[in-house]
Amino acid sequence: MAAPVYRKAILVSRKESPKGYMHLVIREEQIAQTAGPGQFVMVRGWHTGDPILPRPFDIVLADPLKGIFRLCIKVEGKGTRFLSTLKKGSGLYVTGPLGKSITEFDSAGTALLVRGAGAAAVVFLAETLAKLKKPVYTVLSASTKSRLVCRSLLEQFSTDVFIATDDGTEGYSGNGTDLLDKLIEEGKVDTVYTCGAHRFARHVKALDLAGKVRGYLFLEGNMGCGMGDCHGCAVKKEGKDGYALVCMDGPVFRSRDVVVE
């Protein structure tokens, strides 16, 4: 795995889509050239003391030829609000690529079960699977149609995209897990990655434990450094007295290996 770099990078473009989510395209050649699916960057756009820590974001896509990569940021608190107001051409500090890249692509069929900002985490994986001509089915869910995240990217790379909305404004009216279960019943998928909702994680873990799929979770955790220094982003290991670190051991974990709240 390529060692991460810490660089001042340039914001090449920004676009809000849907409302409350900012897509940032950043120029940093080494990160763009070495990043893999599942990896993230730590980003800091400030010299202030408040916010002070860098923020972790998944690499949505990387273009090694153009030397750029993309993030999709849900605007939540101080740091993400700050990042969402940066103008094109601004400098920002990035460390990455961090975390373990996904390297196993031997499944016969992969499902991606995502919601909200969780959708950003799996786009790179969908692209990688598409390049390998592996079937990938995305179950994209949101509260309502206008809150679907990374939709066009996921449609571009997936064999099929299934939409679930809580209010029924588009696609299936109900829980995305129902659509996943159907895909499994039809024998289309043997591997599932999920991100963005605790109930998805619990569901995938139950399927994994039942031997129905190989389940993987993209986990989050309050992270100070992203590279193993601070030991902040701990997740409890299943069946053992101890913790794994999201930044070093993840961010993608086999669901049966970690405790899900």
């Binding site: 916010p51 309050n222 992270m223 982003c233 701990a234 101890g242």
Partner: peptide, 23 residues
């Protein structure tokens, strides 16, 4: 030692709180 249960860190103005618990 396993260390403390998460959340283990919290950003504060010009600083941070940590309760890592020395794993």
């Amino acid at each position: 030692r396993p260390g403390n249960p998460p959340p283990r860190i919290w950003e504060t103005p010009c600083g941070m709180l940590n309760a890592i618990g020395i794993p």
